[in-house]
Design a protein around this nucleic acid. Structure first.
Lengths: 237, 237
DNA sequence: GCGCTCTACATTGTTAACAATGCAAACGCA
DNA sequence: TGCGTTTGCATTGTTAACAATGTAGAGCGC
């Protein structure tokens, strides 16, 4: 068909970047809490919003469901997930297991350029906070953790952290103390200090403490399983 | 339509368990190396093998691709992934980060019943080894790690470990020393000992050592990026 | 009016036909 | 014979129609 005399790729790439793009966008909207748990994601609406066919929308929803960011109920549609208490505990347990290692690798591998990226990011975070730009602040707060995984330069960790950050946003929506929506108290800045000092142990323990602090603002009155606790449910208080 | 007088659910669940099933099966085949890297997964073949429609096959492949166990190339089809060196390093880095935490939680939470499950599993592993049942041995060796995540009772970790174990099988296929296909040297039994003693630190360090031992049998002659090393490629020897 | 049933509509799930692309074998030409 | 081209087939990608299910509202008996 087209040989040497056809140096230009015709289709460039129809590729399946389509659903990737949709997934990304929904992820972002979940992270900065523009999409709340329980929100229905109707196929028609998404088709219009992203200007893509129903097939791509359904495939995007399937990927999101496989990451437990979206729940698909047969014959009823797709909804932003509402994490159960068990799921919430699993997510933060996983974050406590993974993210200290992420930050360890990040400190080991960060170069001058990475430090600048971190600085710039923190400036933006502070700016968003000062301007009371809530969505932006939450988004940046989450993407700080993702930036660490990028500096660690590990694709598995990047993907994992992205998922866990998104789900954390949902957890905070459901169980979080009202108003408290992100790490406001500059733990992130302390972490940058640890980067500058190349102090791995410090960075790890800061991350550990940071995640526990987030967890402190979340109200998981943990029965071991997911059954409803009728006693506390009907006790006056 | 059907009200009180219809106490039985009609459809039981057409649900999307269809693609879940296909995903599971392919995962298993990858883990025990019946499916090797580069193997083409044609839609028609899978439709026949699992007796499902093309739609479900495509959706299953999409999920597998999102876990980087298969690679989908536009207009050419789906193939079992051939991990690059970078990807391989990422996978084992992630395992080293996650699995010690998994085993830590597992030891903390294991009850008598769990110990029995572990014992039974190890017996099967040994039996498979003694009978030179290679596929079975590899499968059990992988599912030991998954069993630990199940005992840890953390769904995120279960899903993560499943993915990492499957990808490890692919990595071993590509970069592993021939013949060495799994943890044969009873590190798993040592781990059970740590469970019995409820020695968390021991269990963590055993897991760490165990993963590093696997890594020792893998030949990642690591250039920092994935570009081909033409110098060594064309040097005699 | 209250509750139930039934009907009409909206949404999701599935299938099948069609379009586009890649691949391989046959052909032609030097 | 070797290389490039062409042509036909096999496979994947996309769309649109159809089937099935859920939902809301009207109708109706009590």
């Amino acid at each position: 068909m087209h040989s040497l005399k056809d140096p230009v790729k015709i289709t460039e790439s129809s590729e399946r970047a389509t659903e990737e793009r949709v997934v990304e966008q929904i992820f972002e909207a979940v992270v900065d809490q523009r999409l709340q748990p329980g929100t229905k994601l109707s196929e028609a609406a998404l088709c219009e919003a992203f200007d893509v066919g129903r097939m791509h929308v359904r495939r995007a929803l399937l990927i999101l469901a496989s990451r437990e960011v979206v729940e698909i109920i047969s014959n009823r549609g797709a909804y932003i997930a509402s994490p159960t208490e068990k799921q919430s505990r699993d997510v933060f347990e996983a974050r406590l297991a993974v993210e200290p290692s992420v930050v360890k690798l990040a400190v080991e591998r960060a170069n001058a350029e990475d430090l600048i990226r971190l600085e710039k990011h923190l400036k933006k975070e502070h700016a968003a906070h000062d301007n009371d730009n809530r969505h932006e602040a939450i988004r940046l707060s989450g993407s700080f953790h993702i930036l660490l995984a990028e500096i660690a330069n590990n694709d598995v960790m990047i993907r994992t952290v992205k998922e866990l950050v998104a789900r954390s946003s949902l957890i905070i929506s459901v169980y979080g103390a009202p108003g408290v929506s992100s790490c406001r108290d500059d733990d992130h800045t302390d972490l940058l200090e640890a980067f500058r000092k190349q102090n791995i142990d410090l960075a790890e323990s800061l991350m550990h403490a940071h995640l526990n602090k987030i967890l402190d603002h979340i109200n998981l009155n943990a029965p071991a399983n997911d059954s409803v606790d009728f006693v506390s449910l009907f006790s006056k208080g």
